[in-house]
């Protein structure tokens, strides 16, 4: 008798359990669907893209290039033509429209290097940055002012007037030295240096981007 009762209770419980499972699964089908987010929330993206944190000054970038800091990758988001005519040393060309093409992902979405995006000013670079930020790519920077700013500050720095403070002169001296590094020759420099011009051949550097470690999952039984 007792056994029969238990069996009845059991059968009833199993029926309820089965009903619950079907209900929950059916609920999944019936739930209102909404467009899934790709990437971070719009609000987050807005606050990220409004903050000037991503900008890097040309002076800082020049310092990085001169010191051959190995932890930076420069990415030129202009088209191939402008890339061919002038670009920053060691820059990689990923035109804006090819930002999400296969292969670019390896440069953009990684944790090994800091990526500095630049274009003629920072308009396209910003757009690239915002799109990448939405996808959650980390370690991205934008060169403030782009190539135009680079030209006016580093390549062709403005000589300060006599009545300017000493810091301006110091800055000018640094920038001038930097511009020499990037290939600009000043008349007074040649007089001194002309006899012994050394062809600078820096060691070739090979940057390999390691694939991200994906935690291999183990299935078990």
């Amino acid at each position: 008798m007792v056994k029969k009762k238990i069996a009845k209770v059991l059968a009833f419980r199993y029926k309820i359990l089965a009903a619950i499972l079907i209900l929950l699964a059916g609920g999944l089908v019936l739930l209102p669907k909404y467009q899934k987010h790709e990437g971070i929330k719009p609000e987050e993206l807005l606050s990220n893209s409004i903050s000037p944190e991503r900008y890097m000054t040309t002076d800082r970038l020049a310092h990085i290039i001169i010191n051959q800091d190995p932890s930076f990758i420069l990415i030129d988001v202009r088209d191939e033509k402008s890339f061919a005519s002038y670009t920053l040393p060691n820059a990689i060309n990923i035109p804006l429209e090819k930002l999400f093409d296969e292969g670019s992902d390896n440069y953009l979405n990684q944790n090994q290097y800091d990526v500095v995006l630049f274009s003629n000013d920072n308009f396209y670079a910003d757009q690239a940055w915002i799109l990448c930020n939405r996808l959650g790519y980390k370690h991205m920077r934008v060169l403030k002012g782009g190539i135009n700013e680079w030209f006016t500050t580093i390549i062709n720095p403005l000589k300060p007037a006599d009545n300017m403070p000493a810091t301006d002169f110091e800055l000018y001296a640094t920038r001038k030295a930097a511009s020499m590094f990037f290939g600009v020759v000043y008349p007074e420099q040649v007089k001194v240096e002309a006899p012994k011009i050394v062809k600078k051949v820096a060691p070739k550097k090979v940057i390999t981007i390691e694939k991200k470690k994906k935690a291999p999952a183990e299935g078990g039984c």
């Binding site: 040393p89 060691n90 390896n106 600078k200 550097k205 090979v206 981007i209």
Partner: peptide
């Protein structure tokens, strides 16, 4: 400036 060869796996 030295050309860096950046190889990506």
């Amino acid at each position: 400036p030295p050309k860096k060869v950046i190889t990506v796996e």
